[in-house]
Design a protein around this nucleic acid. Structure first.
Lengths: 116, 116
DNA sequence: TTTATATGTAAGAATCCTCTTACAGGTGAA
DNA sequence: TTCACCTGTAAGAGGATTCTTACATATAAA
């Protein structure tokens, strides 16, 4: 187990990264082996800038990692691969993660009276 | 295990529902026991219409269920409680779920040439 | 009747997300 | 030089999310 226990904020970021059909498909594709962005964009059928953005989102969440390498013919290739994350989503597990959320805003008075 | 294996689309909806600090806190609170929306809004510190919206989102994803009941003094109370979902998020598990995604659009030609 | 509780829902603003188009740079081969 | 690859990023449109305010309903108690 590499990804021990993410904080609430980290968990939200991970879930947000995975809560997208295209990004889910990207992770699924990378699960079968590493690949570089242009090829990945072609395989999945998406424009390269769009792929680039989604890969950044997944990497920021810690679900994939990229490394810029030089191919034999000298071209710069950015290879991505999945990290070995393992998240368990149950109500009680989420309750634990929720304790470390940093979006309380206890000062800002929400919940106005709303009396009509 | 109640939630056997959601489809790709269902999984995305579940993840999207959980990928929000407030909704994560709602699930965490309901994990300690059922509650009705007005009280839940007060406890968490959010306006009731906002709580209502988030509860709908969570219920649509199948993470919570609500039941409208009549209290002793005749008031209508909508109680929500968590379902016993149990999701495992690994790269290979996501790869399985991704196969049942319904957002291919194989006709619509993405990935234009983009040659400058 | 008025007050307090509960429910639902609609309209609008502000913001975030998604995606395309267009530009910048680089190397190697014809 | 030109073409075919690779990389990155910025601008803008369109739509989805999030949240507030405001309205509507109902019951019980003072």
């Amino acid at each position: 187990m590499t990804e021990a226990r993410p904080t609430g904020d980290e968990l939200v970021e991970m879930l947000a990264a995975l809560a997208n059909p295209l990004r889910l498909r990207i992770v699924a594709t990378l699960a079968t082996g590493r690949d570089y962005v242009s090829h990945l964009a072609r395989v999945i059928g998406v424009s390269r800038p769009l792929m680039h953005m989604h890969l950044q989102r997944l990497e920021a969440a810690g679900l994939i990692v990229g490394s810029l390498e030089l191919s034999e013919d000298g071209k710069a290739m950015k290879y991505y691969e999945v990290t070995d994350f393992d998240l368990r989503l149950t109500a009680s597990a989420l309750a634990v993660a929720a304790r470390s959320l940093t979006s309380h805003d206890p000062d800002k008075g929400h919940a106005p009276k709303e009396s009509s």
